[in-house]
Design a protein around this nucleic acid. Structure first.
Lengths: 342, 342
DNA sequence: TTGAAAGCGCTAACAA
DNA sequence: TTGTTAGCGCTTTCAA
């Protein structure tokens, strides 16, 4: 359907309506049409009407690439997440997207896919779009990507963790605190022998370490750890539970690094006829929306992902619009949601 | 110092490195630097080296807004989905994103949030970015949005459904066929009395209607329908099962409009001590990644979402790069994945 | 193989 | 309140 321009002279217009077309139709200068559209208060009512009419009649949609180039403001925000399917970050992305959209910004989504090399290419291609801000699910480790980001001067929100040295802004929580508090919770409930089912993930590692240390401090037996690698599935959780049952049968409480793993652990206890929580307490991480409705309902560590997204949107837009942001580091905390399983 | 009589205006450069900076450093014209970066084959090896060196030394990242404006090619693809959390579309978005990224495109993500008004604003703001293509999760109903999209001339892929009149390209499957085949499957297994647990959703409606018609054609008792409205949760599924048990206790097979609903239905059967599948067969829709690992494993209708994303990416890029796409309508079909629950 | 010129469509800066 | 002018940073066109 798209016909190529068969012009002899070098016309390379895209063919879409432009601001000049609208201005001509309204009988004003392009800049006046621009004002009528973007800052209607600065324009007389008559002109406003004429321009609005012209916009309607032409079906004009402003070209934001041109606008962005001229104003150095793209009204684009980029978000980088490891994955988008069944990911604990999507609640944050959704609320970020909604907040942004309501304020006239758009969201570009990048997947780093848990690969550092890919992340670096991604970051470069994001910078190329000159977004007004970048949201990172996680903290960027020192390296080329971090250096480039720093050099770009683009407002950045890192998240989902705490560090004294963020690139720019940070909205997160302490993984060590989580590990410690879950261990305390279990011990206060009288649990004696613990297992950890965790994915190969740096943050999960810190929760695990804090959990293990806390248990050690109270002089209880060593924590039995199952590392399921990259596979965060229910299936891995089931296999992990099987290993626990065989290799550390006296375990009476399991802390999992994700809800899906916890669901797998719980599924396997059911299959093996083990009572939850009487014989085995189970705690997940992430509190996916439906964990409350499982039977037994899964206890989990809840992160308010929606809140992180909203705050990130505000930070980023504040900075994009020249306002200063204080504080630059926000700890949103977490909560242990106690349900049937623990 | 300034010997020119005419005062210079304030610069409004963004401050970032530009192609001219690189060109100057390399001792060539900007256009030559551009060629060295974008079409290295058209440039002599010596020039290539000098430019690459200059890029490295300046940390230059091309401004894609400027490039897009000049070339009318944004290398941006937009995707519109109703929701991003626990959504059956995310597998498609993820594969779309990956395919696109590997070919040098980027993805903008829009959420329509099941609201037509919001969708229209979204579509307009998407068009403003002049993306090289748009992916729609679903089929766009006639209206202002559809008209605008048609007028924009942007390549479009609609999906997840079939229609003889797509805006442009279409990758989908038949919801009626699904309803019919699931009914047949149940009946062939000797089931006699059916229930439908469905969300308020047009496509779920068509699956339901086809299911009901097929059952009626075989002269079996009327299908008991529970419409859970907008709430696609496990909780709704549990409540629906409760209603079925009270109001239509002879039901021996349930077809749900989503896996989450099916999971809820299955959870409630367990609570009520009802044998699955002996006494009650359950079939979901969507085949979420972990349904296979539940106990009992949930039977479901599987859509190859990854394939839809990959094909959509190819279609969109083909069109963006001036190739013609045939066929414009692709039926990717579906499969009934038989596991324990049915 | 390289370059000069002329925009792409818009807005910042300045002027009236 | 409205308009003129000059770019934003890049690529297309045309020419050498």
């Amino acid at each position: 359907m798209n016909d190529k321009p068969i012009a002899k002279r070098a016309r390379r217009s895209s063919g879409a309506m432009t601001l000049s077309d609208v201005a001509k139709l309204a009988g004003v200068a392009p800049i006046t049409a621009s004002r009528a559209i973007n800052t209607p208060d600065l324009v007389s009512p008559q002109v406003l009407l004429k321009v609005q009419d012209a916009v309607l009649r032409t079906g004009y949609v402003p070209n934001r690439m041109a606008g962005g180039l001229a104003s150095s403001r793209s009204r684009l925000i980029a978000a980088v997440v490891p994955s988008t399917v069944m990911s604990v970050f999507m609640e944050t992305v959704e609320s970020l997207n909604t907040s942004l959209f309501d304020a006239g910004y758009q969201l570009m989504l990048g997947q780093s896919g848990y690969s550092a090399a890919r992340e670096e290419v991604l970051l470069e291609s994001i910078i190329g779009r000159r977004p007004d801000g970048i949201f990172l699910a996680g903290i960027l480790q020192p390296g080329k990507g971090r250096t480039r980001l720093l050099a770009s001067g683009i407002p950045i929100v890192e998240s989902w963790d705490l560090t004294p040295t963020p690139i720019d802004m940070l909205i997160g929580f302490s993984h060590s605190d989580i590990g410690r508090e879950v261990a305390q919770y279990f011990m206060n409930k009288g649990r004696k022998r613990f297992a950890l089912v965790r994915a190969e993930d740096e943050r999960a590692g810190r929760r695990a370490t804090a959990f293990i240390n806390e248990v050690a401090q109270r002089g209880l037996a060593e924590v039995f750890v199952v590392n399921v690698g990259a596979s965060r599935s229910i299936k891995s959780g089931r296999e992990a539970m099987l290993r626990i049952l065989h290799e550390a049968p006296e375990v009476d409480a399991v802390f999992c690094s994700s809800d899906l793993l916890a669901l797998g652990v719980m599924t396997e206890t059911k299959v093996q006829g083990i009572d939850v929580p009487e014989r085995m307490a189970i705690m997940g991480f992430g509190d996916m929306p439906f964990m409350a409705d499982m039977v037994p309902a899964l206890s989990s560590v809840r992160i308010n992902g929606g809140d992180i997204g909203r705050q990130a949107a505000r930070f980023l837009m504040d900075r994009a619009e020249g306002r200063t942001v204080e504080p630059r580091i926000v700890d949103v905390g977490f909560s242990i949601v106690v349900r049937d399983s623990a």
